[in-house]
Simulated assay, not measured.
Amino acid sequence: MPVAVVTDSTAYLPAGLAAERGIRVVPLEVRLGDRSGRDGDDIGPAELITALADKTLAVHTSRPTPAAFVDVYREALDAGATGVVSVHLSRELSGTWDAARLAAEEVGPDRVRIVDSRAVAMGLGYAVLAACDAADAGADGADVEDAAADVASRCRVFFSVDNLERLRRGGRIGAAAALFGTALAVKPLLHLSEGRIMPLEKVRTSARAAQRLLDLAVAAAGEGADLAVHHLGAAARAEDLAARLRERLPSAARLLVSEVGAVIGAHAGQGLLGIVVVPRRAAPDAGPDAAPVVDQGSRAGDGTAEAGVAER
């Protein structure tokens, strides 16, 4: 049996693909007031949007427990996997990576390898699929890990939100960065840099934000890139952006369109629009921003602030 590939629910892989490829998914948790559930399984974007509209309802998210990862790792190994490669959203945004690291130490760091994608959504998802491709081809654990890390190192994530308040309250950006998007009628554009959410530009309208996302993605993509368009409660805008991407980048290898789930949506808010770009090879201006961190369970993870909408 090949190396088993594990990820978390924030990869937002297309429906049915994880089961088809044998990818094990450990869900994060979401709490809407008194109701708790698993991201994607029990609580999806529609329920989240309804909850966000209720200003009196507290919305929180939380990482999986190390025990949840231990169960999945042992199940895979007991089923005959020669090892496990577990690929997760940026540890700068979540305690999920650290929970996986703790689980790997318990199960055996020689058998479980942990990769920090320094990304979210299909930035994570494409790294997971690369790991799965390598595992299916018979690669050993080190090579499967390298395949995920290679894709993660080339990933760029650009996105716009209606405002930065939820990201600030959740500790995903600092107070100084939050001031970037406080002016009326300003749409902040952000990106991931070394796994962290950083301000990039600000524009005046949603239409201009979509245009700038398009331009940034085209500049980063080159020939044969993998792409994904994500949104929360903005399906028409996402489909329009995807159509324009297809026109500008007809050589794209893959272009997926999907709504993010409750965990990412809880922090970004309704109106999120984003593009994930994985160039075939590193874009000239990509620099080290998306360089991944790989771990065999030996290094300590970092903490993440918890406030308002929080995830640990």
Rank of each mutant, 00 (worst) to 15 (best):
A53R: 09
K55R: 13
T56D: 11
L57S: 03
L57E: 03
L57P: 03
A58C: 07
V59H: 00
T61S: 08
S62T: 10
S62C: 08
R63G: 00
P64E: 00
T65C: 09
F69W: 02
V70N: 03
D71C: 06
Y73T: 04
Y73F: 15
E75W: 06
E75R: 12
E75H: 08
A76N: 04
L77V: 14
D78V: 09
G80W: 10
A81F: 00
A81P: 00
A81I: 00
G83V: 01
G83D: 07
V84K: 07
L89D: 02
S90W: 06
S90M: 14
R91L: 14
S94V: 10
G95F: 05
W97F: 15
W97T: 09
W97P: 02
D98L: 12
A99K: 12
A99H: 05
R101A: 13
L102I: 12
L102Y: 05
A103N: 13
A104R: 00
E106A: 14
R111M: 09
R111T: 12
I114W: 00
I114M: 07
V115A: 15
V115N: 07
S117G: 14
S117N: 03
A121W: 04
M122N: 07
M122G: 01
G123P: 01
G125L: 00
A127W: 07
V128E: 11
V128A: 15
V128W: 09
V128H: 07
L129M: 14
A131N: 12
C132Y: 13
D133N: 14
D136W: 11
A139Q: 13
A139V: 11
D140A: 14
G141M: 07
V144Y: 00
V144I: 15
A148I: 02
A148H: 03
A149C: 03
D150I: 03
V151I: 02
S153P: 01
R154S: 09
C155T: 13
F159G: 07
F159A: 06
F159M: 15
S160V: 08
D162W: 05
D162M: 01
D162T: 09
N163A: 09
R168V: 08
R168A: 10
R169T: 12
R169M: 10
G170P: 03
G171W: 05
R172M: 09
G174Y: 15
A175H: 11
F180S: 09
T182L: 10
T182Q: 06
A183L: 13
L184A: 10
L184D: 08
V186R: 11
V186A: 13
K187D: 09
P188E: 06
L189A: 04
H191T: 05
L192Y: 04
